[in-house]
């Protein structure tokens, strides 16, 4: 009964969607806003990756919200898992230690992955990539250590403080723009530099580094919370 109703609902939605899509032909739509970004994105923000100039330049406020969403989810996850854990006695499960090959391999790869993650977010304004991608790569390095080296744990305070400080850097950069850079929140107050060089694009690299560190430490915190739960 329920599935019949659901199917009817889906058919109705599908029909409506097909009807509307007929006015948006595939592969030829071009928007004024998008074209403007491609034409003057480099001059406006100094970033050669136009997606970055949209994410951290034109729509930086969205990104601030996005960082906050992830922050909210990480805290929420911590709160939910902590709320149930209080009235349970802790029992430590004994983990079988990982084999030597796995252990050494993880330790060898860990700094390389971190380096790669840092590269991705530092070069966000020049090449594909950016803070979120770099942060996810960094968190994956920690996930590997958790899985491969088992007993190793990060310090919770350290992760929380990194998260907190990098979030603050984002907001304070925005507020500095409000104070000195033409009186707009999140406006660029640093020189744009030469295109296609590392030190260019004003505040974009600063924000992307902050986001990279924040996302990295946040996702690591989430992994840490979940792994603690399984013990």
């Amino acid at each position: 009964m329920r599935s019949v109703f659901s199917l009817i609902l889906l058919v109705v939605i599908g029909a409506g969607v097909v009807f509307t899509l007929s006015s948006i032909p595939f592969g030829s739509t071009s928007s004024d806003v998008g074209e403007y970004y491609i034409d003057s994105g480099r001059a406006d923000t100094g970033a050669t990756n136009i997606v970055t100039s949209v994410v951290v330049g034109y729509r930086a406020f969205d990104t601030l919200g996005e960082v906050t969403v992830l922050f909210v989810a990480a805290i929420g996850l911590g709160a939910i898992l902590a709320a149930g854990r209080e009235n349970e006695e802790k029992k430590k499960a004994e983990w079988e230690p990982a084999s030597l090959v796995l252990y050494t391999g993880c330790r060898f790869l860990f700094p390389l992955i971190l380096l790669f993650g840092a590269y991705v977010f530092i070069h966000g304004h020049l090449t594909p990539g950016g803070g979120f991608q770099g942060g996810a790569i960094i968190a994956s390095a920690f996930l590997m250590v958790y899985l491969g080296c088992r007993k190793k744990r990060i310090s919770k305070t350290w992760a929380r403080n990194t998260e907190s400080i990098s979030g603050l850097v984002f907001v304070v950069t925005g507020l500095t723009g409000l104070a000195v850079g033409g009186h707009y929140f999140l406006s660029n107050f640093l020189p744009e530099g030469t295109l296609n060089t590392l030190f260019s694009a004003g505040i974009i690299p600063i924000i992307y580094i902050a986001i990279g560190l924040k996302v990295g430490s946040e996702l690591t915190g989430v992994i840490d919370d979940l792994i603690e739960e399984s013990e």
Binding site: V33, Y58, R59, A60, F61, G177, G181, Y184, F185, S187
Partner: peptide
């Protein structure tokens, strides 16, 4: 009306 980042609408938020 506040234009964030100093970009005029519809280009900025």
């Amino acid at each position: 009306v506040i234009n964030l980042g100093g970009f005029t609408p519809p280009f900025g938020i």
